[in-house]
Amino acid sequence: MIGRTAIVAAAFMAAAAPVAFAGASHHGKTRTVGVNDDYYDPGKLTVHVGDKVKWVWHANGFSLHDVYVDSGPTDFHSPTQGAGSYSYTFKKAGTYKLYCTQHEDDMTMTVTVKKASKKK
């Protein structure tokens, strides 16, 4: 009888485990930013910790662009390229001032990263 109870309890726990852990981690959203000729679109973006931002180059391929952190809680940068994409997952809350090293004065953007909201 004890063996049967243990098997039933183990089966119940195994079935309930995915439900119990479903809310334990934040599965971030992906937001897209266009990298155009001399500007990012949008120029301001608000995301949460765990969210990914994907920069997609829409330029004609003749102009080179990149994404560099001017100031923020973490440094990162993309390769300098004329086409393609670059993604970064934000792990720290704060304000990130970004720019293109090829067009420093004109091509900037701000990403505000908020703490992940707790599910109730």
Rank of each mutant, 00 (worst) to 15 (best):
M1A: 14
M1Y: 11
M1H: 10
I2K: 11
R4N: 11
R4Y: 10
T5D: 14
T5S: 13
I7M: 09
I7K: 15
V8T: 12
A11K: 09
M13D: 04
M13H: 03
M13R: 06
M13P: 00
A14S: 13
A14D: 07
A16N: 03
A16S: 11
A16R: 01
A16L: 14
A17L: 15
A17N: 05
A17R: 07
P18Q: 09
V19M: 12
V19F: 15
V19Y: 15
A20K: 07
A20N: 08
F21Q: 08
A22F: 13
A22V: 06
S25L: 08
H26P: 01
H27V: 15
H27F: 08
G28D: 08
K29V: 13
R31S: 15
R31K: 14
T32N: 07
T32H: 09
V33P: 02
V33Y: 04
V33I: 15
G34F: 09
G34Y: 11
V35K: 02
V35F: 04
N36K: 11
D38G: 00
Y39W: 07
Y39T: 02
Y39Q: 10
Y39R: 10
Y40R: 05
D41E: 13
P42Q: 02
G43T: 14
L45A: 04
T46R: 11
T46S: 13
T46W: 07
H48E: 14
H48L: 10
V49L: 04
D51R: 06
D51N: 08
V53A: 08
K54I: 00
K54Q: 13
K54W: 00
H58I: 06
N60S: 15
S63Y: 08
S63C: 01
L64T: 10
H65G: 06
D66Q: 03
D66W: 04
V69L: 07
S71D: 12
P73K: 10
D75Y: 12
H77G: 05
P79T: 05
T80S: 14
A83F: 07
A83C: 01
Y86R: 00
S87E: 15
S87L: 04
T89A: 11
T89E: 15
F90S: 03
K92D: 07
K92A: 11
A93V: 02
A93R: 09
G94Y: 03
T95W: 02
Y96V: 02
Y96R: 07
Y99T: 01
T101H: 03
Q102I: 04
Q102S: 06
H103M: 07
E104S: 12
E104C: 00
E104A: 12
E104L: 08
E104V: 12
M107W: 03
T108P: 01
M109Q: 09
M109V: 03
T110F: 04
V111A: 07
V111E: 06
V111G: 04
V111R: 06
V113Y: 05
V113Q: 06
V113D: 05
K115S: 13
K115E: 14
A116C: 06
K118H: 12
K119G: 11
K120C: 01
K120M: 01
